[in-house]
């Protein structure tokens, strides 16, 4: 849950920092710019470690704690890096009643991680998500932007094997 200073790897590049500074300069004067800046920052870095939030704080004058408070409020902001392939299993009602819980449990077991984590090799990260609006295909999971529907537990190994 928490990710204290220095405990999360950070290898930000000069280019990423420049891109972030450019975004901040563009958006800073807009009303309520913090969330759009954080979203763009996450697009650039993939997550929002302390180094990134500190840049945002320094450039906008918004206290770091406030940014962290926002980052930890919304489910989509990540304090930890995500895997090369991001798996999310829909636990929305329709999927749930059609057994997506079993799919999720199987994935946790298979990958040896719990939801919200990333495998040690950085390959997969796993999350549960709310309805992705594909209820007709329940149960559904997404790997990156690919949607897999009408799943059974037996399909999972085959799907994972497609990703390198």
């Amino acid at each position: 849950m928490c990710s204290k200073k220095g405990s999360v790897p950070f290898n930000g590049t000069k280019e990423q920092e420049e891109a972030l500074l450019k975004v901040i300069a563009e958006l800073k004067s807009e009303k309520g710019a913090l969330m759009p800046i954080m979203q763009k920052a996450q697009d650039i870095y993939g997550y929002l470690p302390i180094e990134v939030q500190t840049i945002i704080s320094n450039e906008t004058g918004i206290p770091l704690e406030k940014i962290y408070g926002v980052a930890t409020f919304y489910a989509q902001f990540n304090l930890n890096p995500k895997g090369r392939h991001r798996i999310s299993v829909c636990l929305g009602t329709a999927c749930y009643v059609k057994g997506s819980g079993d799919i999720y449990n199987y994935l946790m077991e298979k990958l040896g991680i719990v939801g919200g984590e990333c495998t040690p090799d950085g390959k997969f990260s796993l999350d549960a998500c709310r309805c992705v609006g594909a209820c007709g295909l329940a149960p559904v999971m997404m790997v990156n932007d690919d949607v897999y529907g009408r799943l059974t537990v037996d399909d999972i190994d085959g799907i994972l094997a497609k990703y390198e």
Partner: peptide
């Protein structure tokens, strides 16, 4: 801390039952 002192080093983090008052990155 935020409104009167303009310091804002403590605030609400996380949400729901896990909400806690603390500093950025649990410092």
């Amino acid at each position: 801390c935020d409104k009167v002192q303009g310091v804002g080093v403590i605030g609400a983090n996380h949400r729901g039952f896990s909400t806690s008052i603390g500093s950025a990155f649990e410092m």
